[in-house]
Design a protein around this nucleic acid. Structure first.
Length: 360
DNA sequence: AAATCGTGGTT
DNA sequence: TAACCAAGATT
């Protein structure tokens, strides 16, 4: 599988890609910047298998960037719901609108102009330019960072500014300028299928003979992992309300925290498990969904609250923290500003809570 | 510059 | 099974 050392990295990879690279992903070889862009944004920090279904649904709903631009933000958020990193969805929509208003509905064939669009950074711009049109622009995603760190023995973790600068310089230098799209695709495919994070298959690697990490016996050490910090735990009480017709009491998340703009059960932060919570703290949650609890409902909620110590918390893990929820529930209520769940963009947690309640 | 932002696949 | 981390961008 290994090539002569006289052949350049780029030539070796381009040759390898044609026989061993991935070929059949739906956005590949379309020459369509809209499809490449849509897939690239969805693939940010997200695995291919997770993206496939979302990609199909988006393309079915919006066949062109103009169609996407003309949709409402709420429509876009609903289609994106469950995929995570929701700022991507808002930027996707904003980007589509800018493509329409600034560039007449066609993505600009220019890396700098692409980077000026919301949600498109340097790597995504390079991917769009090279994969759609064959322009000479490098990419630097997780796969490529890993390949370069090993191939050239780059130490320090890739999130560091100096290391990142070095990796971009390598990416510029090594870019296969005869076939930039194929070269970039090869880098990603190599990282995804051969030069994997764990148990890399060096025997199958076309760059085996020139890999610095392999030569030094450091493949398992590179790229150097980012120092990990403890994930703080946060505790909440959430209120789940449902009518007898199945409408639910959701509110739109305000501010700039997690799930901004999505709909969630009203909830309050506990700042630590020991804090005493009683009816005065719960009443505002009902107010958020336009509900005034009668005495029976009030007593029921307080009863559920007191059982806090004996009931397991529902844990929802995010990248940087663990969220623990105590769920209070009222079923079969009437009144309030309840909504149809199918009409709202909601995070997975909303469904997770319904499952715990048996509201399925 | 370091933190933030979701969720799920893989090992 | 708990840790790792995935076609990163933004602030």
């Amino acid at each position: 599988m290994s090539s002569p050392e006289s052949q350049s990295v780029a030539d070796t990879l381009v040759q390898w890609q044609k026989v061993a690279g991935r070929q059949h992903l739906p956005w590949q070889n379309t020459g369509d910047a809209y499809r490449v862009w849509l897939s690239e944004v969805m693939l940010q920090q997200t695995q291919v298998t997770t993206v496939l279904g979302y990609y199909d649904r988006f393309l079915k709903a919006f066949s062109t960037v103009t169609a996407l631009a003309q949709a409402s933000e709420e429509e876009v958020m609903q289609l994106w719901a469950g995929l995570g990193y929701y700022t991507r969805a808002r930027n996707l929509h904003a980007c589509a609108r800018q493509v329409l208003t600034r560039f007449g509905g066609e993505f600009p064939r220019d890396v700098a102009a692409l980077e000026s669009l919301p949600g498109i950074g340097r790597s995504t711009a390079g991917a769009i330019a090279s994969l759609s049109w064959g322009l000479a622009a490098p990419i630097l995603d997780g796969n490529v960072k890993r390949v370069y760190c090993r191939l050239f023995g780059v130490e320090g973790y890739p999130e560091q500014t100096a290391v990142k600068r070095e990796l971009w310089a390598i990416a510029e230098r090594e870019l296969g300028r005869q076939a930039p799209g194929v070269y970039n695709q090869a880098l990603m495919d190599l990282g995804a299928t051969v030069c994997t994070p764990k148990n890399p298959n060096c025997a199958k690697c076309p760059l085996m003979k020139r890999c610095v990490a392999l030569k030094k016996g450091m493949v398992g050490q590179l790229p150097q992992p980012k120092p990990k910090k403890p994930r703080p735990s946060q505790y909440f009480v959430a209120l789940a309300v449902r009518s007898k017709h199945g409408e639910v009491g959701l509110t739109a998340r305000q501010g700039k925290g997690v799930w901004r703009g999505l709909w969630m059960w009203p909830h309050l932060s506990l700042e630590g498990v020991d804090q005493v919570v009683d009816w005065p703290e719960l009443a505002p949650l009902l107010q958020e969904i336009g509900l005034q609890a009668d005495e029976r409902q009030q007593a029921e909620l307080v009863r559920q609250l007191k059982a806090l110590n004996r009931q397991d918390w529902l844990v929802h893990e995010l990248t940087h923290r663990k969220m623990h929820f105590k769920v209070l529930a009222l079923d079969g209520v009437s009144g309030g500003d309840l909504v149809a769940l199918s009409d709202r963009a909601v995070p997975r947690l909303v469904h997770k809570i319904m499952e715990q309640l048996g509201w399925t």
